[in-house]
């Protein structure tokens, strides 16, 4: 797919329509990359100026016109940890059931279809659902735990789908080999399937989490705070978070033009955080590929 036909043929052999098609495809890619690059350039060039040690280690001061965004960074980290604790075990376990235990048929097809649709539900819907269920019904109030669970629900479909795909790539021959030695289903999963699927599960899960970490709508109504002078002290505390802070600094602040650099700095930190998570996923995948090549 990736070989370039242009090299092997002379221009004369190209038909007109093919040339137009080729450049239409090629320029689409260039345009997409250009837009991405512009966004990144805008954020980096305007945000890099405010970033220093104080910016990432101090609380906002003077009505959030000065100081740093430390509580928002920590808040996002905490809420992401809770998301992990909620979504990963549940999602992986559900995927194991769906792929290894459930009798494949109409029911499993229906579940998979529902999961795919759930992954496409707008995040504000998850936010309001989280408010109704975790904040009100379970009485957590607006808090880290309510927001973390809500983000967990949001990533669950992605986690289940990614995990199931990873499980499905484990060759059937490994399972049969283990079954034929008298392994129980759980032993097969535990000792043959999971070790093989784990890197894929992690990669997919991290990508899902990276998206959740940047979400604003689900935490808006479930625990994110406009401004807090202190860090969250328990699961029931409210918290500041990077995406929400960014939203405030760019639309809700009383001196928007004055805090613009802080907004850009916040955006840069958020993008950097998400990129870091993605890098972890990529490096995990590379290590896994090498391990597969070595056969261990």
């Amino acid at each position: 797919m990736r070989e370039r036909h242009g090299k092997s043929r002379t221009k004369g052999q190209w038909r007109g329509a093919e040339i137009i098609g080729y450049w239409a495809l090629r320029s689409s890619l260039i345009i997409a990359l250009l837009i991405l690059f512009l966004i990144l350039y805008d954020i980096v060039s305007k945000g890099i100026g405010v970033i220093n040690w104080e910016f990432i280690t101090a609380s906002p001061r003077s009505g959030m016109t000065e100081g740093g965004i430390y509580p928002a960074i920590i808040g996002t980290l905490y809420v992401t940890l809770i998301t992990i604790a909620f979504a990963v075990p549940l999602g992986v376990a559900a995927a194991i059931y769906l792929n290894e235990y459930a009798v494949q048929g109409r029911f499993t097809r229906l579940v998979r279809m529902a999961l795919r649709n759930l992954a496409g539900v707008p995040s504000i819907v998850f936010g309001l659902f989280g408010m109704a269920v975790f904040v009100k019904f379970f009485g957590f109030g607006p808090s880290l735990i309510a927001a973390g669970f809500t983000l967990g629900l949001l990533t669950l479909p992605v986690t289940v789908t990614a995990s199931e795909e990873a499980l499905a790539t484990v060759p059937r021959a490994y399972r049969e080999g283990a079954f034929a030695l008298g392994a129980t289903r759980w032993q097969v999963v535990r000792s043959v399937v999971l070790p093989r699927a784990l890197p894929g599960i992690l990669t997919g899960t991290i990508l899902g989490l990276a998206r959740a970490a940047g979400e604003t709508a689900p935490i808006l109504a479930t625990g994110a705070a406009f401004f807090l002078p202190y860090l969250p002290s328990s699961l029931r505390s409210r918290f500041m978070a990077l995406p929400y802070h960014l939203f405030i600094m760019s639309t809700q602040h009383h001196a928007i033009s004055q805090v613009r650099p802080i907004a850009y700095g916040t955006a840069l930190i958020l993008v950097a955080l998400v990129c870091m998570l993605n890098l972890v996923a990529v490096s995990l995948r590379r290590r896994y590929r090498r391990r597969v090549a070595r056969g261990l």
Binding site: Y174, E176, G177, F179, A180
Partner: peptide
């Protein structure tokens, strides 16, 4: 039963 009745497959399938 499967302990007593072992099986070898068409494609060699050692575990990784």
């Amino acid at each position: 039963l499967r302990k007593r009745v072992g099986m070898v497959f068409q494609q060699p399938n050692p575990f990784p």
